[in-house]
């Protein structure tokens, strides 16, 4: 699919923006953590859209946030 851009996001309602970002993030996160991809994606969607866009373009920042999310998730579930 074509890259998701800030202008494409801005043209969509807020909930649709999160949907668009989630559809892009989920397969990337699923490749890292198949069992937790849904929960991790849900957590990351609480982050600002501008930062989520950056994460889509930067695997390093995505991996960093995914690691943070897993730590929070595990602490939450204890």
């Amino acid at each position: 699919p074509e890259p998701l851009t800030a202008s494409m996001l801005a043209a969509a309602p807020l909930m649709d923006q999160k949907q668009l970002l989630g559809e892009r993030l989920y397969p990337m996160i699923h490749a890292l953590h198949p069992n937790l991809a849904g929960k991790i994606t849900g957590m990351l969607l609480e982050i600002d859209n501008s930062e989520l866009l950056h994460m889509l373009e930067s695997p390093e920042s995505l991996h960093s946030k995914v690691d943070e999310a897993i730590a929070v998730l595990q602490a939450h579930q204890v």
């Binding site: 807020l14 909930m15 999160k18 949907q19 989630g22 559809e23 993030l25 989920y26 397969p27 849904g38 929960k39 994606t41 849900g42 957590m43 969607l45 609480e46 998730l73 939450h76």
Partner: peptide, 22 residues
């Protein structure tokens, strides 16, 4: 407090409802 329903799970192709709980 602890919310056992958090975090909301994203499912591809399913309309995202996560923000409704914030």
């Amino acid at each position: 407090g602890t919310n056992i329903n958090w975090p909301p799970e994203f499912c591809p192709g399913v309309p995202w409802k996560g923000l409704q709980n914030i």
